[in-house]
């Protein structure tokens, strides 16, 4: 095929010629809002419909009522929605843990990043629980020595984030040093074993909560966080969580 090199030459020349002709001289950028003033593509809409009907059949049942809109960005070291989640994990999991082991959960630690949605003012449905907690993570209770709980406390002080907690009361000073840390109202003792409820994601190293690695024992409750929320919503007629003093900084 003798013409091939010639053809290649021609193409290369053409490409080079093209290259020299194209000059980027202007860039325009804009953000387009997907609002209800845009029409819906009917083909897409029709495609989604059977999926939607299947999913939302059982998700729209009303479980509770929220008196306000709660977001994880409202609050510095503790948030109303985070407090609700930690409280829910404690209230729903402790009876199960106690029945199985005769022991009680001392504190709960979740992660701020794990709050995946807001709670909007108004009806709270099963769908709300899916939105806040779309992940399939479950409750685990980890037996930690006081030394590890102190590592947990230092992690929280360093992270400066509103990771949801309950049972632990943590106060930081102006320079983010731990001013006081109480579990169930008492100072942490190095050799005491504390039962810390969390989720399997954090236990397995999520958010670098490495203090969970050194533990005395692990109790897997087989209880999904989403189911915890659903059960909690069913029990509470009205949701009215507040920002409190469980994790604060002295200014």
């Amino acid at each position: 095929m003798t013409f091939k090199p010639l053809l290649c030459c021609f193409i290369v020349l053409a490409l080079v010629a093209c290259k020299q002709e194209s000059h980027l001289y202007k860039i325009e950028g804009q953000q387009l809002l997907i609002s209800d003033s845009l029409g819906s593509n009917q083909e897409i809409e029709a495609f989604i419909k059977p999926y939607r009907e299947h999913v939302f059949k059982d998700l729209d049942s009303v479980l509770s009522y929220a008196v306000d809109t709660y977001t994880k960005t409202n609050g510095e070291f503790n948030t109303a929605i985070g407090n609700l989640m930690a409280d829910a994990v404690y209230e729903e999991s402790n009876p199960i843990f106690n029945k199985r082991t005769g022991k009680n959960i001392d504190m709960v630690l979740l992660n701020h990043g794990g709050i995946r949605s807001i709670i909007s003012k108004g009806n709270v449905t099963t769908k709300t629980a899916f939105e806040i907690m779309p992940f399939e993570n479950s409750v685990v209770v980890v037996a930690l020595k006081g030394t590890q709980v102190n590592a947990l406390v230092n992690y929280l002080a360093k992270a400066k984030r509103a990771h949801p907690i309950v049972g632990l009361q943590l106060v930081l000073d102006k320079t983010y040093n731990v001013k006081s840390a109480l579990v169930r109202g008492k100072p942490i003792e190095s050799e005491t074993v504390y039962y810390v409820a969390t989720n399997d994601y954090l236990y397995n190293g999520g958010d670098h909560m490495d203090f969970f690695k050194t533990n005395d024992s692990l109790y897997v409750l087989d209880y999904k966080i989403r189911k915890v929320l659903i059960d909690y919503f069913i029990k509470k007629d009205t949701l009215n969580p507040v920002i409190d003093d469980r994790f604060i900084q002295l200014k």
Binding site: E21, S22, H23, L24, Y25, K26, I27, E28, G29, Q30, Q31, L32
Partner: peptide, 21 residues
């Protein structure tokens, strides 16, 4: 949405790329 405009006019390009954001 980002639009990139190309032109063969070298003088235009020599003045630099205009960015409108």
């Amino acid at each position: 949405r980002i639009d990139f405009y190309f032109d063969s006019d070298k003088n235009k390009a020599a003045n630099g790329t205009t960015i409108l954001v």
